[in-house]
Design a protein around this nucleic acid. Sequence first.
DNA 1: ATTATCTATAGATCTATAGATAATGC
DNA 2: ATTATCTATAGATCTATAGATAATGC
Lengths: 209, 209
Amino acid sequence: MARPTREEARDTRRLILDAALELFAAGGFAGTSMRQIARAVGVRESALYHHFESKAAIFEAMVMELGPGKMRRFDELDLDASLAGGLEPLLRSFARLLMEESARPREQKFIRLMLAEAPRLKDAGVLHNPMLTGMTYLTGVFEALARRGAIRPGDPELHAVEFMGPLVMLRLTYLVLVEGAPDMERLFALVDAHVHHFHDSVKPKEGTC
Amino acid sequence: MARPTREEARDTRRLILDAALELFAAGGFAGTSMRQIARAVGVRESALYHHFESKAAIFEAMVMELGPGKMRRFDELDLDASLAGGLEPLLRSFARLLMEESARPREQKFIRLMLAEAPRLKDAGVLHNPMLTGMTYLTGVFEALARRGAIRPGDPELHAVEFMGPLVMLRLTYLVLVEGAPDMERLFALVDAHVHHFHDSVKPKEGTC
DNA sequence: ATTATCTATAGATCTATAGATAATGC
DNA sequence: ATTATCTATAGATCTATAGATAATGC
């Protein structure tokens, strides 16, 4: 035994991170032991310490890998080009993308873990609440949209809250806090309805009364 | 020592529950030891077992006490009478009440605990996700409002999502996931702006174009 | 020589229980 | 007799380390 041959070699670091995410999401950081992680991976505890200095180091590596805000997908976006297809389709595809991503098992577990360990995130070297970071970013987007007249003028933070609030809540109720398979059909129907409702309430007023 | 005199007697059960809420909210259920709770209360571990069978029993008692959905405040409400003052003031006072309540330290800790322990709630005898219960309830309220023409017709679940989503998110960002004193002024400004925006989007259409 | 594992274990917890002690309320 | 605490401890479990072993890549 001891060191495995090249044929048997596996990416143990990867396996540790995957097993730890699974276990942390289900039992919490403190509720998961190095022993459980080792058992899930199929190695001894001491092998874990070869890859990570401590249990906290596993958590930190996980946050570093999955954490830094997925909100920046708008960054690669040329607002003017995207707006050519219309504001509502743009918002809808963003909202659907967010939900599809959140529905992925790894993301579901990670969001659950972040919510559960929120009070301890700072100790793990995560300076800012990911939710706040996302909101700050979206606020900037709505500011830009208002500047070019794509939406009617107003408090951009309010627009960010009105747009993201229902999405965050739908994600919580349908994806994060639910157990078993989520009702994706109902979820997407509500997402589309929300986008339509939101768009209706911010689109520039047209015509005269 | 041993049993304290009547003068020194304290409500130890109450003190245990309070200390446990504090510690569970900060460190999670698994991250908190009976030893820590005993130290916080100022008794020995064995005294805890006089009041509760186990650590899990403390958690269960806590959920039983604080859990059963605070959403039912609408129950004591005569919709018709309340609507006399106008829909927007009614919604605003509900939203502000929800935020004021969520801002109370005990509630903040409890919400944090519920989010953190959500995957383990079923084991604690909590059958339903409190968030879903609240949404079901609110959906009924908006159905009633639509039936009596106080809001324009539409999917009542969508209305519940549009109304509560931003409130849930504001609560998360400003009260639950934040550390230190929350910026209540900015929070209430956003709550009021949200209620106004929401009311604008659901009030019955008046006049003709 | 380095890397990835193993066996074995030290030392620190932690939950829960047994049995003693003293105040209370009948 | 009952209630609420204490002291003491059994027994389980947990994090982390020391040192051995064998495969890898130079």
